[in-house]
Simulated scan of single mutants.
Amino acid sequence: MSQYHLDGFALVVGAAGGIGEEVAYSFAEAGVKGIFLADINAEAVEKAKIKSKSLASNPSCRCISTTVDVTDLQSVEEMVRLMVKEFGRIDYCVNATGVDVATYCSIDQTDPDDYDRVMAINTKGMFLVIRAVAQVMKSQEPTIINLGRHGNRDGGRGSIVNVSSIMAVVAVEGKIAYATSKHAITGVTRAAGMSTSEAEL
């Protein structure tokens, strides 16, 4: 992403590690005005915030970190309210929260509680973030991105990217809950795209 110039403000959910952390760094390198990093791991997301600021190509880029429990509606809505309070809008949202199963095992040995945990974080959590962010994006004005010598580009009201897995289309042995949750993310993403298309997000 560093080869492109991005304007506006980015929300990265699941920013404390893995893909989410790297996405936050890429937003910083691409020149956004601000990054809101959220994760359930307070210490790790604070470290990611500090590194994002150090990588920012835009000297005025603000980086803010917060904790969020994506399985809890109130926590997700508070995260979104705080970002809007600090930055005024959400131009980009990357939904990168995810967990694996506790134990690789066959379906007859799968713990229902672990199944519920994985589904709650990977699928319900993604739904709750999309829901809250879409409400903000639908109400804000489109943004114009200055690409320098390439002119201006209409950035629309915002973009939401859901990070999934190859297991959204295939399955492997011993990961029933994980594969199911990733298949469900495909459905959530497609349905969300249909319901928000008229708003030109």
Rank of each mutant, 00 (worst) to 15 (best):
76 V>Y: 14
44 A>T: 04
114 D>Q: 11
66 T>L: 04
85 K>H: 14
13 V>D: 10
135 Q>H: 11
162 N>K: 01
193 G>R: 13
173 E>Q: 15
74 Q>M: 09
61 C>T: 02
84 V>S: 06
159 S>R: 13
89 R>H: 09
131 R>S: 10
149 R>W: 10
111 D>K: 13
81 R>I: 01
172 V>Y: 02
185 I>W: 01
67 T>H: 04
88 G>T: 10
182 K>A: 00
160 I>S: 00
32 V>G: 03
70 V>I: 11
48 A>T: 07
139 S>T: 03
43 E>H: 07
164 S>P: 09
130 I>W: 02
84 V>E: 02
185 I>M: 03
35 I>M: 05
71 T>C: 15
152 N>D: 15
167 M>D: 05
36 F>R: 01
42 A>H: 08
61 C>Y: 07
88 G>M: 07
57 S>Y: 09
174 G>N: 00
16 A>S: 12
30 A>M: 07
126 M>L: 10
109 Q>S: 15
188 V>E: 01
60 S>T: 14
147 L>A: 07
28 A>K: 01
99 V>G: 04
139 S>C: 10
8 G>Q: 06
92 Y>E: 15
80 V>G: 06
14 G>T: 04
110 T>C: 14
135 Q>D: 03
54 S>K: 06
143 T>L: 03
110 T>E: 15
35 I>P: 03
164 S>H: 06
43 E>N: 15
33 K>V: 01
55 L>R: 11
99 V>H: 05
73 L>Y: 06
19 I>H: 10
16 A>F: 09
195 S>T: 14
135 Q>R: 15
4 Y>V: 12
117 R>S: 11
181 S>L: 00
128 L>I: 01
113 D>P: 08
182 K>Y: 00
178 Y>D: 00
62 R>H: 15
189 T>L: 01
72 D>Q: 09
24 A>Y: 08
77 E>L: 07
72 D>N: 13
180 T>R: 00
197 S>T: 10
183 H>A: 08
139 S>F: 03
93 C>D: 14
73 L>P: 02
57 S>W: 03
124 K>F: 01
46 E>T: 12
51 K>P: 03
24 A>G: 15
47 K>G: 12
166 I>H: 04
196 T>C: 08
18 G>F: 10
201 L>I: 09
30 A>P: 03
197 S>G: 08
200 E>W: 04
195 S>M: 13
134 A>I: 01
138 K>W: 04
77 E>F: 08
123 T>V: 05
102 A>G: 15
197 S>Y: 08
102 A>M: 13
132 A>K: 05
123 T>C: 13
194 M>F: 04
191 A>K: 08
90 I>Y: 05
28 A>N: 04
138 K>V: 12
189 T>F: 01
142 P>E: 01
132 A>G: 05
170 V>C: 06
147 L>W: 06
96 A>C: 15
107 I>T: 14
183 H>Q: 04
